[in-house]
Amino acid sequence: MAAMIEVQNLTKYYGSLRAISELSFSIAGGQVVGFLGPNGAGKSTTLRILCGYQPASSGSARVAGFDVFNQSRQMRAHIGYLPESTPLYPEMRVREYLRFRARLKGVSGAQISRRIEQVNGQCWLAEFINRPIGQLSKGMRQRVGLADALINDPQVLFLDEPTIGLDPTQIRETRHLIGSLGEKHTVVLSSHILSEVEATCNEVIIIARGHKVAQGRPRELGAQVAGQSSLIVEVQAPAAALQAAVAALDGVRQVQVHENDGWLRVRVEPQGGNDLRQPLSRLIQQKGWPLRELRREVASLEDYFVKIVAGQ
């Protein structure tokens, strides 16, 4: 199956500032994809380019089978976009706004009322659909923005920070909604909150300072990181012998020994994805050293993300 979104060497300069550089990825249809990165990583810039709001400085992109630059208008008929700040017209009523947006997106006259009823049900707008947008709370506005993005039943949905500024209940509801959208649409959402992406997405693209750092399923990325997790051991033993014995084990990359109130605290870094817990415990048993702790420091996706953010 052809990719729903295909991005090649996308680069965007704002003046002399490079917002994104040589970004390439492809996304298959029917997925919920998380765009993860710290603030200023280039997430919004990338989404804006893919939505046809601004062009890239170089590179190419296809969305829903259309070239983002040369077939921008056809492409825009097949997408829904929720910008980060959820811009709406405060003087319009919700229903009136959705009607306006549906017309603008070329939904045929006969379909408009039916589509409004559908998004009304999907985004729980019923209680305020006849109220002016200016009177709505942040959470309600977010739902109206999402309803607008859905009004033309698009193939691809771009949601820029869809849960920012919501309270915990609303965040949960919105995540649930986004999860359910993945069945019919290809959803690309951006976020700087890792747990959000882990909870809603079946694929993650991590970007930092305009570069793609990693792409994969959250669990795969997690496993990749976990494979590099180090072991912490606290024993009482002669330091030099301990260091030598541990370093001699198969698959050990690095050993660090520290004195810690009468005990030796050893940090063992494995090579690749080796699990050294068993060999280590066997070694300590053989030597008869008193042991008070042996644990694996599981590097979570969170740690990985923090490392990337910190620029390591």
Binding site: G52, R76, Y81, Y89, R101, L104, K105, D148
Partner: peptide, 14 residues
């Protein structure tokens, strides 16, 4: 000012 230009210009309209 309000940013609605983004939703306006990403609709299929020239």
């Amino acid at each position: 000012r309000s940013g609605t230009i983004e939703t306006l210009m990403t609709a299929p309209i020239n």
